[in-house]
Computed example of a mutant assay.
Amino acid sequence: MAETIKGRGSRQYLAGRFERTVTEAFDDGWAPPEGDTECGPDPLRPRTRLHEESARSIISRNDSPDVGFSQSVNPYRGCEHGCSYCFARPSHAYLNLSPGLDFETRIFAKTNAPELLRREFARRGYRPDPIALGINTDAYQPAERRLRLTRRLIEVMLECRHPFSLITKNALVERDLDLLQPLAEQGLVRVHFSVTTLDPRLSARLEPRAAAPHARLRAMARLHAAGVPVGVMFAPAIPWVNDHELEAVLEAARGSGAESAGYVLLRLPHEVAPLFRDWLQAHLPERAERVMSVLRQMRGGRDYQSQFGQRMRGQGRHADLLAQRFALAHRRFGYADVRPRRLDSGRFVAPRPPSPQGELF
Results as ranks from 00 to 15, higher is better:
92 H>N: 13
304 Y>E: 08
124 R>T: 10
12 Q>D: 11
131 I>P: 01
296 R>Y: 01
48 T>F: 01
94 Y>M: 09
34 E>V: 14
241 V>A: 06
215 A>Q: 14
83 C>W: 04
183 L>T: 02
159 E>D: 15
44 L>N: 15
25 A>W: 11
90 P>Y: 08
15 A>W: 03
41 P>V: 02
315 Q>Y: 01
317 R>K: 12
55 A>I: 03
64 S>C: 10
75 P>M: 00
213 P>M: 07
8 R>M: 13
57 S>I: 00
340 P>Y: 06
107 I>Q: 06
313 R>I: 13
278 D>Q: 12
178 D>E: 15
55 A>K: 05
327 A>W: 12
118 R>N: 01
191 V>E: 06
194 S>V: 08
165 S>C: 10
217 L>F: 07
17 R>G: 02
20 R>S: 07
113 A>V: 09
273 A>Y: 10
213 P>E: 04
72 S>V: 04
102 D>E: 11
47 R>D: 07
126 Y>R: 12
18 F>P: 09
311 R>T: 15
106 R>F: 01
237 A>K: 02
77 R>K: 13
315 Q>I: 02
47 R>H: 05
108 F>Q: 09
172 L>T: 06
244 H>T: 04
234 F>Y: 12
51 H>E: 10
321 L>K: 14
279 W>P: 04
115 E>C: 00
40 G>I: 11
84 S>H: 05
66 D>I: 04
33 P>R: 14
49 R>G: 00
279 W>K: 07
355 S>K: 04
